[in-house]
């Protein structure tokens, strides 16, 4: 499917060990999707930790952390309460908004951007923020073209962060349905999605939805990665 095109080109092998490779993934996202900066902030209530990763220069990152803006920044605190992506233009210009964006402006950070909120099953929440210096119309176009992939990347990244904690990893064991396992098994056997739809007497789009769900549960970006992981967990048998 077209949707996975951009994501398929993520070079997961190129990710270095630095900070678990998290920042490298954000730099790759910035590159692939064409935004100026990408940042992630999330909270793991099980471990009681907050996590932040960003592509911003050290000067802005240091200033941001020193001023504790992550406590008041509405692109985090407000935006991640929603379920839909929040365009920053929609945020109310509260005192907190002005405080953060006045400084951001001094560091040449654009106030054009959006935040994609993520809500996990155990009260874990996160937000992936992307900024751009493009004019409004171009930014709108970029948003339209990338939004679906960004949704996938936001959840993928959030799950990686949450699963970096061993306890949370145990709680987040992939809980595949019989249907999802069945479909992965057929793919491992070399069947196409169309074939599988015919075999199971369901539409190929239903196959696709189950497959996407299986990928998410296995914290995999691509189907081959999901199959590999399912085999290593003994959920699917290699053919």
């Amino acid at each position: 499917m077209k949707q996975a095109d951009l994501i398929d080109h993520f070079d997961l092998n190129a990710i270095s060990g630095r900070d678990g490779g998290f920042t490298d993934i954000l730099f790759q996202m910035r590159e692939k999707f064409g935004f100026d900066h990408v940042a992630y902030a999330g909270v793991n209530p099980i471990k009681g930790t907050t996590h932040g990763h960003m592509t911003y220069d050290d000067a802005w990152a240091d200033h941001y952390v020193k001023k504790e803006y992550y406590r008041i920044d509405p692109t985090l605190t407000e935006a991640r309460r929603s379920i839909a992506p929040v365009d920053w233009g929609r945020l109310e210009h509260t005192r907190n908004f002005k405080t953060v964006f006045r400084d951001a402006h001094d560091f040449n950070i654009s106030n054009t951007g959006l935040t994609i909120p993520v809500h996990g099953p155990y009260g874990d929440i996160g937000g992936l923020s992307l900024t751009s210096n493009l004019p409004a119309a171009d930014f709108h176009k970029l948003r339209q073209e990338t939004i679906s992939d960004l949704q996938s990347m936001a959840v993928y990244f959030h799950d990686l962060i949450i699963r970096s904690d061993p306890l949370s990893r145990i709680l987040n064991q992939p809980n595949l349905s019989a249907r999802e396992t069945e479909i992965l098994q057929w793919i491992a056997a070399g069947k196409s999605q169309q074939d599988i739809g015919d075999i199971l007497s369901i539409s190929h789009r239903t196959v696709e939805v189950h497959l996407r769900s299986a990928r998410t549960k296995l914290a995999a970006l691509t189907t081959p990665q999901a199959i590999g992981r399912a085999i290593s967990l003994g959920l699917v048998y290699p053919e």
Binding site: I83, Q151, S152, N175, S177, A178, R179, R212, S213
Partner: peptide
């Protein structure tokens, strides 16, 4: 009793 679908692009 099956676990539900979970996907970033499914509401």
């Amino acid at each position: 009793g099956e676990p539900p679908l979970r996907s970033p692009t499914l509401w």
